[in-house]
Design a binder for these strands. Structure first.
Lengths: 222, 222
DNA sequence: CAAAAAATGTAAGCTGCATCACATAAAGGT
DNA sequence: ACCTTTATGTGATGCAGCTTACATTTTTTG
């Protein structure tokens, strides 16, 4: 299990980006958000990128018809707003705090570029992270195109197990902060279907689901 | 109608990337591919990015089950392989020539970085292009999630009209090189459904479809 | 120009999952 | 502890579009 949250490709993003450690960025770099607070709106100018230092952030946009598109749900140590680095001048989605309190390390674009210049390895790993985001999106797209809901859920669980699972004997434990609605949004289905599937997997003895953790008995069975 | 193919954000990518104009890159920069030729395979190392100078290139990958995922179909002036700039070391998809002859302007990564250093505006516009690719993928994803097939097809036609349509009186003419199977792959449906829908739109007098061009009577009707 | 291959046209039947409509349970607020 | 809100559980019903199965037309090839 790669600890890809804190450490990305051997570069500790958190340490570099998290302001508490860096005197010169100490002011104004620590913001408390309440549940439901909007961190940025579409059409806000893309001046910063952010790292979640506490809580849970949801990146969403809305279709004409007002349906929600969940692009990502991010926890501690994860980065968002990174499209600003690709010449985006206005945000095209919402970033919403969805726990209380949610805390962020914002990093202004010029500061970011400065950091990237100073630390080439860091710069590279930021671009690499963008590359991974693209691939993740492509995988999601592919799944939606060709896989049925059950397969998508299982793949998603495997991914979680790989990214943040803890091995414990023959099981893998994944601590999570998702609701079943969150799962549904992320794999492109409805909440009811997720409920049904989790219970099916439970029945089959493959997983053990609670609101806080999922125990997977044999990732290969998914 | 923006001529976004040749000129991207006021930077003429073609002129910069196309080798014929640049003495120092004149060798080896002009490759002829036959229909079906593979330009790169997954796991090839990502050493170059390419611009199509003639023909049609398809970027695809395959799921476990062997189903095709069409990520893009590119024509003259369009760029692919750009994930190499994001620290990708191995390709994760196929690039296939699908016309004969297909010609490319390859650009080795170091040369590319050199060019980007020399011409900052160019460098920026390359990253911007990547940003646009991400947004395009996100739009496709959203469409798949929330829109029915007919809407997806209409949106796709609108996009084509916008990107490469020629206004002619009250109509917009879009010259294209897609088969109905291509359309199906790109909007995430089956060929038969595309056929049905094109004929439906024809019946309703909204479009006029031939293998070479589509005439749209009133893009707003789509 | 004939034959093969590729693209397009059409229709009937089936199914995965959304939708609707509630019931129960857990969490959070006061 | 009580009340409100949020999350989860479970059946009944419907339908968009996939599947399957051919027919026809257009393009390509030898």
């Amino acid at each position: 299990m790669s600890n890809s949250i804190w450490c990305f490709e051997n570069v500790n993003l958190f340490q570099i980006l998290c302001p508490h450690k860096l005197k010169q960025y100490q002011k104004d770099h620590f913001e408390g958000f309440k549940k439901g607070d909007v961190i940025y709106f579409p059409d806000d100018s893309s001046k910063s990128i952010f790292m979640v230092s506490k809580g849970k952030v949801k990146i969403v946009s809305y279709s004409q018809e007002g349906e929600e598109i969940v692009k990502a749900i991010l926890g501690k140590g994860e980065i968002f707003g990174e499209k600003a680095l690709l010449g985006e001048d206005k945000r095209d989605d919402y970033a919403l705090a969805c726990t209380e309190p949610t805390e962020l390390c914002p990093m202004k674009l010029p500061d970011m570029y400065e950091l990237m210049r100073q630390n080439e390895k860091f710069g590279l790993s930021i671009y690499k992270l963008i590359g991974f985001r693209i691939k993740k999106m492509e995988r999601r797209f592919e799944a939606l195109l060709h896989k049925d809901v059950k397969t998508r859920l299982c793949d998603f669980l495997k991914e979680m197990a790989d990214e943040k699972g803890i091995e414990s004997g023959s099981e893998v434990i994944v601590n999570h902060f998702f609701t079943q609605k969150d799962f549904a949004d992320l794999i492109g289905t409805k909440r009811e279907t997720v409920t049904r599937l989790f219970n099916e997997l439970k029945q089959d003895g493959i997983i053990d689901y609670t609101r806080k953790e999922i125990r997977i008995r044999g990732v290969e069975n998914l």
